[in-house]
Design a protein around this nucleic acid. Structure first.
Lengths: 342, 342
DNA sequence: ACGCGTTGCACAACCGATTGCGCTTACCCT
DNA sequence: AGGGTAAGCGCAATCGGTTGTGCAACGCGT
């Protein structure tokens, strides 16, 4: 049951293996007659020929494999991006290899090393830190790669994200429109672009509305988790700072905040308003349902994949490094309401 | 920047490439002296040698790649299984390639074809149908593969799942203990093992409690989705059959049921009790929180990976095909309560 | 009819690591 | 001292496609 190989096809079609190869790959300047091509293709199909990708890869140094690196597949933020990317890639004949790093830099390095030794053609990276030596290395070695969701300080690689700033701005607009004036921000980790951007956009939005901006109005969470949201909210309550609304760094932080507030006797939306970010599955079914910023995750994945493919296909395409931002939308739901006393 | 290859290492160490290969692979009967081995390994590290897996794969016909096939990565049921499998595999030096099929058989076939042409060493399959020609083919060709989460009618391949029957039984026990006697089951698709097992276990449990079992007590959902849950519940309400509790085929169906019931003015847990299956993230935060059966998803993935590796490592291991069931637990929460009128 | 340019295909080197085979060297035993 | 043994390593074939080069045949123009 040894697999049928190129030489079998060639023999059956009465041509040289080299010719068969050109025929099957529709070699543009290999000059194979239409008749021969037809015959080879036909016998290949008849024999059920499947090319051996090791042999091909050895010669061409191309694998048609794309590696995607995410912090954690079980975080519902990532699967839709994976899905979008995979759809584009598999249609183009590529295979997506997914690995998660558990937010561990050593593990990330090992994964990338392994993938590179497998001849991976390019990378989709969702784990970038704001200052990330690993990613910069990749950029310098010239490995095709696209950042997704998180950017780095230096824009050496193409980036696909969403319009975080606007997301925060419409959140603040929404809250101000409801009469809130004491708004705080539970920011994500500041070693990620998302954490920094959202915090920066938050401060900017307050200024636009001519509201005062105090330093203690932005509390930094150590991670994008519910637990970190609980901690930050506990700090906020302990500080005694007055507030009627919270803009959370993401949905999980928002959940932590809601929980902590409820334990302190302050309930959304009557006593306090909370807005999240990401629109995770099921947050619309909570009671009250979570007001949050919805992201086009699948489109982000698809776009990143397309950019990566373009990067790979013409490697001499030293165009400007693209920074693409996709639009977001605010899903107004139950956790946001009029400011108390209005 | 051409990569350093075996011959470079060999030259630097003053040995023949063949010898270097044996030294680096600690060839058991290749008899390389300890001293030479040490020297080769040392220079390899110094030069930063990374073996080319194409060349290796071409020669050895091994890829150290495992393919995992799931219906849909964005279904939160699967990422934990992926995670568990990936952890085991990457520790053993394997890479996991994840693909989803979108529940489409043609796409599934294409994906498997592609992976096989890449020399994939084995498969983890979470998409099996109860009668699945595709899976049976794999079994016959002798490709190492392990089924996970869903089994097939014929047990030709190893299977790792969880103890569905007990999960349903404890659910029914719980409801009966609360005084419910009119219990219905919204079953999953009957072309999957999970759908069939759970329905069968449901009927069995009723008999154990000496409750009557009517055919109209089991309604079949067309898929494991919220939408299908809505439809089935609508049918149930229309049928006029009395009931005080529902055992749902999975959490999404349960959510659809809760929603439909609420729209009809029947609220959990006072008017009706609902139990789900899977314990998806956030279902514990709903109001009321969902009583459901929790599955050891990560462990399932890890175990399946271990079995697959064993299968691959000694291919002459024609032991009995393992059918492994992991234990489950009932998370009693807010949607289940005493039967009305008790 | 001759020369030149094309077209169509065969030839063989090559990608880089693995591995069966066989040669050399050192050592041991009688 | 000679023959035997085995350890240690080099040699070259091999995996299966891809691709630069060369050669034959054919068509066309003058």
């Amino acid at each position: 049951m040894t697999r049928v190989k190129l030489i079998d096809v060639a023999r059956a079609a009465g041509v040289h293996p080299g010719t068969a190869s050109r025929a099957l790959n529709s070699d543009p300047d290999g000059r194979v007659s239409a008749e021969t091509t037809r015959r080879v293709v036909e016998t290949a199909k008849r024999l059920g020929y499947v090319p051996n990708s090791f042999a091909r890869g050895l010669r061409t140094a191309r694998s048609f494999v794309i590696g995607m690196i995410v912090p954690d597949v079980t975080n519902p933020l990532f699967p839709p991006m994976v899905r979008g990317a995979e759809q584009v890639l598999s249609q183009a004949g590529y295979t997506l290899v997914l690995t998660d790093t558990d937010n561990d830099e050593a593990s990330e390095r090992a994964q990338i090393e392994r993938l590179r030794s497998r001849g991976t053609d390019g990378f989709l990276i969702a784990t970038a830190l704001w200052e990330d030596p690993l990613v910069e290395e990749l950029g310098e070695v010239g490995v095709p790669a696209v950042l997704i969701n998180r950017n780095t300080a230096v824009h050496r690689l193409p980036y696909v994200g969403c319009d975080e700033r606007t997301g925060i701005e419409v959140s603040v607009d929404h809250l101000v429109g409801l009469g809130h004036r004491e708004i705080v921000h539970l920011a994500g980790p500041q070693d990620t672009s998302t954490g920094r951007e959202r915090a920066s956009a938050f401060r900017h939005s307050l200024r636009v509305h001519e509201l005062p901006v105090d330093p203690d109005q932005v509390l930094i969470c150590s991670s994008y988790t519910e637990q970190a949201g609980v901690e930050a909210t506990t700090r906020l309550l302990a500080s005694g700072r007055p507030f009627t609304a919270i803009v959370a760094g993401n949905d999980l932080i928002a959940l932590g905040a809601l929980e902590t507030l409820a334990a302190a006797g302050r309930h959304a939306p009557d006593d306090v308003s909370v807005v999240g970010f990401n629109d995770l599955p099921l947050v619309d079914k909570l009671t009250p349902s979570l007001t949050t910023v919805a992201l086009p995750l699948r489109e982000m994945g698809a776009l990143a994949a397309r950019i990566l493919l373009a990067e790979i296909e013409d490697s001499d395409h030293f165009g400007p490094v693209a920074q693409s931002l996709l639009g977001v939308s605010l899903a107004v739901r139950g956790t946001s309401g009029p400011a108390p006393g209005r």
